[in-house]
Design a protein around this nucleic acid. Structure first.
Length: 271
DNA sequence: ATGCGGACCTGTTAGC
DNA sequence: TGCTAACAGGTCCGCA
């Protein structure tokens, strides 16, 4: 499942096929995603041109004259562009049929994703309204996160994975960024100095930028829009490397479940 | 307001 | 080899 780089890679992959194209209709084989897919999507977006496709955090926003579809890939969601006649496979829950004989096919075995409809500004939608800044903008900077972290007792890993603080930092890249910043994942967010947040902000931006450039991480089942795997996995320093030597100090990396998420770190390099 | 744990699902992998 | 349990990239929600 996609973290921000995978969602960004998906966005870039679908734009050439979908932007300014007309939607014929939706074929919904299974509406039971995280929330039921509302019938308004089909009613309002069929026969409409997609006038923009953008990303906010891990949400993809499809604009038509009548309103917006809000799409989240959850843990296991993927979009593929295929010829309309392609027979669906299991877990191919939705087809967005385009007028160019292609369709955008939504596949999601775990069905943690969602597909929603709004007729007004999607950024004001309940799910998007409280999102923090985009990590790759100037808005996400040391002053901001340092101030936001004061008095906060949660561990830093949970803190940077909180989308109200900053969007797009999922489990893999949280592990990676903390390693490069030399910060222990359990350290209380409110007890980290400004100087160390400088390093962390730079690490988050760098890790995400490199991952996007490499087309996202391939773990079990992420593929880019054309079915090609991403190439970032080979660059991971800690995630998936438990018991292997730290790339800096050669000590064995430690894996621990923190806040119900797999956490890998170096007890020597991260304090 | 903050923090925590449970919930939503199925496929893959690890362990016996 | 086969069965079962643990685990997986997310994040919302209700409760303390």
């Amino acid at each position: 499942m996609p973290e921000l780089p995978e969602v960004e890679t998906t966005l870039r992959g679908i734009i050439p096929h979908m932007l300014h194209k007309k939607i014929k209709c939706f074929i919904i084989r299974n509406p039971n995603l995280r929330w039921p897919i509302p019938s308004e999507i089909n009613l309002n977006m069929s026969n409409q041109i997609i006038s923009s496709i953008t990303r906010r955090g891990k949400y993809l926003l499809f604009e038509t004259r009548n309103g917006y579809m809000i799409l989240h890939l959850g843990m296991s969601g993927r979009l593929h562009i295929v010829p309309t006649a392609t027979p669906p496979k299991p877990h191919d829950h939705v087809d967005i049929i385009l007028s160019n004989d292609l369709c955008c096919r939504y596949y999601d075995p775990r069905r943690f994703g969602c597909m929603l409809w709004t007729d007004s500004d999607p950024l004001q939608h309940k799910l998007l309204k409280k999102l923090g800044p985009e990590p790759l903008t100037e808005e996400f900077n040391t002053v901001y996160i340092y101030q936001a972290s004061r008095e906060r007792k949660v561990g830093i890993k949970q803190f940077i994975m909180n989308s109200q603080i900053v969007v797009g930092v999922g489990n893999i890249y949280a592990n990676e960024a903390l390693f490069f910043a030399g910060i222990h994942p359990s350290r209380q967010a409110g007890r980290i100095s400004y100087q160390r947040y400088e390093k962390l902000v730079a690490a988050i931006k760098q890790v995400l930028t490199l991952a996007i450039a490499d087309g996202g991480t391939t773990l079990r089942d992420f593929f880019t829009i054309d079915g090609q795997p991403g190439y970032f996995k080979q660059s991971l320093a800690v995630y998936g490397r438990a018991e292997e030597p730290c790339v800096k100090c050669k000590r064995k990396l430690i894996q621990k479940n923190i806040n119900q998420r797999t956490t890998v770190f170096c007890s020597q390099c991260q304090r």
